[in-house]
Every structure is written in structure tokens, then in C-alpha cells.
Design a protein around this nucleic acid. Sequence first.
DNA 1: CTTTTTTCATTTGTCAGACATTTAAAAGTC
DNA 2: GACTTTTAAATGTCTGACAAATGAAAAAAG
Lengths: 246, 246
Amino acid sequence: MKIDPNSPADLSAQIANAIRDAIIAGALIVDERLPSEAELSEQFQVSRSTVREALKRLAAQSLIRTQRGATGGAFVNRLSFEDAYSQQVTTSTLLLSMNAVSFDTACEARYALERACAPLSASRRSADQLATMRAEIFRQSQPGLTDEAFCASDVAFHRALVDGAHNPVLSYQLAGAVEAMQPLMNMITFTARDRAVILALHGRIADSIDSGDGDRAVAELTALEDETRKLAADVFARRATRAAQS
Amino acid sequence: MKIDPNSPADLSAQIANAIRDAIIAGALIVDERLPSEAELSEQFQVSRSTVREALKRLAAQSLIRTQRGATGGAFVNRLSFEDAYSQQVTTSTLLLSMNAVSFDTACEARYALERACAPLSASRRSADQLATMRAEIFRQSQPGLTDEAFCASDVAFHRALVDGAHNPVLSYQLAGAVEAMQPLMNMITFTARDRAVILALHGRIADSIDSGDGDRAVAELTALEDETRKLAADVFARRATRAAQS
DNA sequence: CTTTTTTCATTTGTCAGACATTTAAAAGTC
DNA sequence: GACTTTTAAATGTCTGACAAATGAAAAAAG
């Protein structure tokens, strides 16, 4: 681990990268304790503040955790799917909102990924996951549900579908795509008729998963994608009309 | 943005979260300049070091960038797909290595996601992306190629396939899955016969994409997945045998 | 001897103040 | 007007200090 004091990059960034690379390379293993801040500052020949800034950078990426006290210090963190999941959601959300990703693009990606899960979910889903899907469908059928609650239930439904594949890697990858779309989905106002159509599609998707028919689930998901895009197109068309009039 | 000095969490973490939430909520927009460190330390009633640690946390997530000098400061960063992409790769790599994700699980996720891209890629890929696929296939046919170089070319081939879908969200999501698997793939040693089989499958995939036949591309990808898993199974079986003998 | 309490050393968290470095704008010079 | 110099503002780094947490060792109690 070498540091160049004349590099344009901040010392704290260099140190953080050096430690991160050591973790990736396996030189530092999970739960291993890093040297104390005082020792690190001596090793790298920098002040303790600089070391601390480097450690905070790593902590922000869940690569280390710190503990105070006599036997405390910084420890290499086992990156859990949960940690990665929440980071993935914020990153994806910001990506969509900051880069003006169109609704169609996000929607296409989301359903393409979901269709990838459907066959696996159809053959593996637990009874519990199927029950969750049914429960969310029931919730969506309740009158008086706000649009936001409807969207939230929609996310829960699709998460159960994805988790049914019992592949944590897939669940992790999809989490961002599905949850990050929620702000976009929330722009849509659902009429009673819209909800009925979606509800019917959700029901048919659950039935397909229930009967283990992956191909049919894929087809129903495609139908749901078409429906979603049609709804969004209507919303944007109405907005454009209003904007032109005013 | 309120900070609780009695919270168990570090002040710097609280401040970082407050600023992050403001960015997500849109209260701070892209390229907007945050108050100077001195001003922030007064606003939050903490020392400048604490503010700095908070800012380093945000910088580690590419949420802000800092600039020195008279008109310098911390600016809200436009999170680019490239930034997110590299973070995604490191996170995915660590997830796989630290959580003992099986080769089969990772492989299944990867090919499921790739199959999701295939139909889109078949109908949209640019001539350039198809040329890249062909070029990588040619490179893979060269004798004397190391296993690592073969794997790297494999990644490039699949990236071209994915990018052919022309959906940045899909490319971003898949980047992690494909690149993070490279260390696992590198454990496999390819015999000349293995390479010939893979090469033939790559050729057929490229042909499918070329002719716009998404369904066939999906089928060929499935065949490639089967082949990859068979190779991996052989490797692990040989290892188990050697381990039992020694 | 065992259990409980106290003390203590270690380590992170926070603060205050200082200086170095970078940078662009303002002021000065020709 | 064009160029150079100065200046002010901001981040980057260093030093030293104290607070707070925490486990371990030492001391006290039974």
C-alpha cells in the first residue's frame, strides 16, 4: 500500500482506495481488524484526520464498520445483500432522476428483468411468497386506496415475484430497478378502470406462478408492461395538452 | 436538516444522511454548490472536521465533488451511469466473494439477465456492436490465448450483446452481474475442446443477433449457460477428487 | 477461591486552531 | 487594453487536546 503525496488526488482518497483494493484482493479478510487510526497515520505518514477521512469513505460504502472502546477499531465488514440492496436502491433512484431516463426506458428494463425471473419463480416460489402475492392483490382491490399505497403494494407484489426465484443475486439486481421506478410510477394516477385491469393481470400472473407455468407468466408480464406504458403515455399526453393550452 | 447530538450514530453520519436525503428529495439540485465547510459547521453546530468527514462520506458515493480555490466548494454531482457502473462492479464482486455465492447461483442470475436483453439487442443493436461481438469471437479463436485473456474477451463479447439493447438501465444492472463473475470464471481452465464449443455458441449467438432472431439468441444463451455450468461442475468435481486423495 | 466492583489503558468521536495549497477575481502596472 | 501581481476564499492537511465508550486487568468483598 503506497501513497504518493504529490498526486493530484486527496491523500484520504488514495488511502481509502489502497485499503479498498486490499479488501477486494483478499489481503484483508472479513472481520479482520485494521490497525488503529494512530498506527495507520504512522504507516501512511499522514495525520490522524486524514486517516479518519479515508475510513469514513470506506464506512460510507459499508466496507468497514467501527467500534469504540478498548478492543474497538475498524473492522472489515461482510458486505451483506441487505446493505448492498439499500445502496443499490438509492443509486438507481438518483440515476433515473438525475439523468432524465425516460419512463419507457426504465419500464422496459424493469419488465425485461422481471421476465427473466418469472420462469425461475414459477418453479421455485415458496408457498409464503405466493401468499404474499395474493395478499397484495387483495390489498390492491380495496377501494379507497391512495395511488401511493397502490404503487407501494405493486412494488411489494413484484418483489415477492422476484424473490420467488430464490436467487439472491437476481433479487439484489432487480431491487434497484423495481424500487427506483416507484417515483416515476407515482406520477401516474390510476382510475378505477385502470386498477381493475392491473388487478386482473396481477391475478393472472399469480395464477401462472401458482401453476408453475413460467411461459404464461412471461406473457402476462408482457401484457402488464404494455398496459403500464399505455397508462404512462396517456398521462404524458394529457400533460403535454395542458402545457400547450396554458 | 436536523441533527441529534445524543443519537448513538456518529454526527458525521447523521449530517451525511441529511444532505443525501436533501439531494434525493430534490432540495439540492445537480451542480448546486453546498455551503462552505465553515458555514456548514456553523449550521449544524459541529466542528469543521466533523463536517469534512460527512462530506467525504458523500464523496465516496459520488454524490458530491469538491473543488479547491476561491470559487471552490462541494457541488452536487450528477450521478453518471459510469460512476454508478464502477461502484456496481466492486459491490457485486465483494457480494459474491464475501457471501460464498455458489457458481451456479451467480451463473443462473447472469444468464437470466442476459436472456432478458437478447430480444432487445436482436432488434436494436448497432452495426458497431455486432462488429465488436464478431471481433471478440475472432480474438477468442486465436491459439495461445491465456485463460484470463479468454475470459476478458468473453466479458467484452457479452457486454456488447447487452449494450446492443440500447437501454442504459439494463446495461448498468447487468454490468455488475457479468463483470463480478469474472473472478469465478477465471477459476475455470479451458481446454481447446472447451473453447471450440464456446466459440461455436458465441458464433451462433452473434448470428441470431445479426439476423434479428431474438428467440434463437435466447435459446443459444441457454445452451451457453448449460455448457458453462457443465465446465464449472467438472472443475469442482476434479478439485473434490484431488482434495479427497490428499 | 469466587464474585463483584473499581480502576485503567486503549480506541474512536469531536473540537479548536493553525498553516499549506489552490484558484479565481480584483487591483495594479505598463 | 493586455499583462502581472496581489488578495481573498476555499479546501487539504497537521497538531494537540479532550470526551466517551469499552473491555480487560486489578482490587476489593464475600
